[in-house]
Measured scan of single mutants.
Amino acid sequence: KFNKELSVAGREIVTLPNLNDPQKKAFIFSLWDDPSQSANLLAEAKKLNDAQAPK
């Protein structure tokens, strides 16, 4: 279960257009550290992506 959630969340995070590479890497490392938090980490990444969207 975690492997699928981890890969789905990881793929989504790397495609978020408004995150820079260090931010993406930080989220990916957090996913590896605790795969059970993949849904929460993906939600946080999406929030940050939205907040950094060009206005």
Rank of each mutant, 00 (worst) to 15 (best):
R11V: 08
L48S: 01
F27N: 01
Q37A: 11
D33H: 06
K46G: 03
P35H: 02
F29C: 15
A45M: 00
Q23W: 02
K4S: 13
F2L: 12
L48I: 06
N3G: 14
P35S: 02
D21I: 10
A39M: 09
L19K: 00
N49M: 02
D33L: 14
A53C: 07
L48W: 04
N20Q: 06
Q23T: 05
K47L: 09
L41G: 02
W32I: 09
I13C: 04
E44R: 05
K24V: 04
E44C: 13
L42W: 03
E5L: 11
A39E: 13
L6G: 04
A53M: 08
S36L: 07
N18H: 13
R11T: 10
N49W: 01
K55T: 10
P54E: 08
N3R: 05
A53S: 11
L6A: 14
V14A: 11
K25G: 08
D33K: 11
L41V: 12
F27A: 00
L41A: 03
N18L: 00
A43P: 00
L48E: 02
P35A: 04
S30F: 11
K47E: 08
A39S: 10
S36K: 08
V8A: 13
S30T: 08
A45N: 01
F29H: 14
D50M: 09
D50L: 07
P35F: 04
L6W: 07
L42R: 02
S30A: 14
L41H: 03
S30K: 13
T15D: 12
Q37G: 05
S30I: 10
K24W: 03
D21E: 12
L41C: 05
S36H: 05
F29Q: 15
L41Q: 02
Q23I: 05
A26D: 13
K1F: 12
P17A: 07
F29R: 14
A53K: 09
N3T: 13
R11D: 06
K25T: 10
N40T: 13
S36P: 04
I28L: 13
S30P: 06
K47C: 11
V8P: 10
K24M: 02
S30M: 14
K4W: 11
N3W: 15
W32C: 15
E12D: 06
L6Y: 03
R11L: 13
L41R: 01
A45Y: 00
